[in-house]
Simulated scan of single mutants.
Amino acid sequence: MRRDFASYSLIQAEGLPFHIHYYPDSDSPTQTGSSDKTIHLREAQIRRMPEKLFARLKVQAGQGRRIYARDTVVARIDKGMVLEFLQEQHLQVALPGKYRYGLFLAGELVSVAVFAGGRRMPEKGTDYRSFELLRFCHKGDLLVVGGLSKLIKRLVADFNPQDIMTYVDLDWTQDSSLQGIGFNIEKTLAPQQFWITDQNQIPIHSPQDIQTCMEKAPDGYLHYNSGSTKLVLYL
């Protein structure tokens, strides 16, 4: 796969199961005019995290290294371990969450899932609790088949949630694979703007917000996403 995106806006590489829509920093996402799967990348992302991007693209293209969750061991992990893993492997800002789980293969951490604390929803019942999946990722170009299901199973055994909800980034997927493990699409959220730094993802609501972020965090960059989809797994 060629790594020079500089002269492209829409890349349709032969043999890949997706298109890549590339945006200069000054542009916001637009529709490609195609019903095929499209991955949206920004110039700033490519500059700041090329190795993480290409590892994920490799997995999306079906060329990642496959291992199986049945060969791994699941365990709770601490805040420091999960933040280090996410900073090295995840494309978004690392979040510690409240509950953190990892999959280990021969003692090596290969996947993590981070959950928020259970949110009570009395309108659905006095004991109803919803947990949000905040972050999930594998290491490098690994694909742990059945990995997320195994991590969720451990959370369910520990805390007995009534549902698990999450948001998937439409920059990367228009048809979420989470539906294959029982998640249901609840709604689609409109595109948003964020100021991205190594430690924070700050929502942008006005031009003044951009100016403030540029002054306080000049090393960050403005990111326009394509929106997101909310999914819920009812248990």
Rank of each mutant, 00 (worst) to 15 (best):
S34I: 06
F115G: 07
D158I: 07
D219H: 14
V73K: 07
I185R: 12
G140K: 11
D175V: 13
D71T: 04
W195I: 06
Q31L: 15
Y68G: 00
I164T: 07
I77V: 15
M1W: 12
Y221D: 03
C213Q: 12
T126L: 12
T212M: 07
A75Y: 02
L86G: 00
Q63S: 12
D163V: 07
Y99N: 10
D198C: 02
K216H: 15
S149P: 05
L143Y: 11
H19G: 12
G80F: 09
Q193L: 14
I202F: 04
N225P: 00
A94E: 01
Y234M: 12
Y23N: 13
S35W: 08
E132K: 11
T38F: 05
S149D: 02
I185T: 09
I210D: 03
A55P: 00
S28N: 13
F85L: 02
I20C: 05
G62R: 04
D25M: 02
R42Q: 13
E108I: 05
F131G: 05
V168F: 05
G80I: 03
Y22T: 07
V93D: 03
I20R: 03
G80L: 14
I77D: 04
V145F: 00
T173G: 06
L10Q: 08
M81W: 05
G64M: 05
G147H: 02
R100C: 03
A217V: 07
Q89Y: 01
C213P: 05
H19V: 08
T72H: 03
R48W: 08
T72D: 00
S206M: 11
Q201E: 15
S34E: 09
L95G: 02
L148P: 01
S149N: 12
E43Q: 14
L148G: 04
S9E: 15
I152C: 05
V112G: 02
A61E: 04
S35N: 13
G147P: 01
L142E: 03
T72M: 00
P207V: 09
N184W: 06
F5M: 14
R3H: 13
S28F: 13
S206Y: 10
L170S: 03
I164F: 06
K124P: 10
Q174H: 12
S35E: 11
L41Y: 00
R70N: 00
L231W: 01
P96Y: 05
M49W: 06
G15S: 07
G227I: 04
I77H: 06
I196F: 00
P24G: 14
L41I: 07
Y167L: 14
Y8A: 14
K124Y: 13
G33M: 05
D175G: 10
F131C: 06
Y99R: 15
E88N: 11
S176T: 14
I210V: 15
V74A: 15
D219Y: 13
F18T: 04
D141I: 06
V112A: 06
Y234L: 11
E215W: 02
L133P: 01
S226I: 01
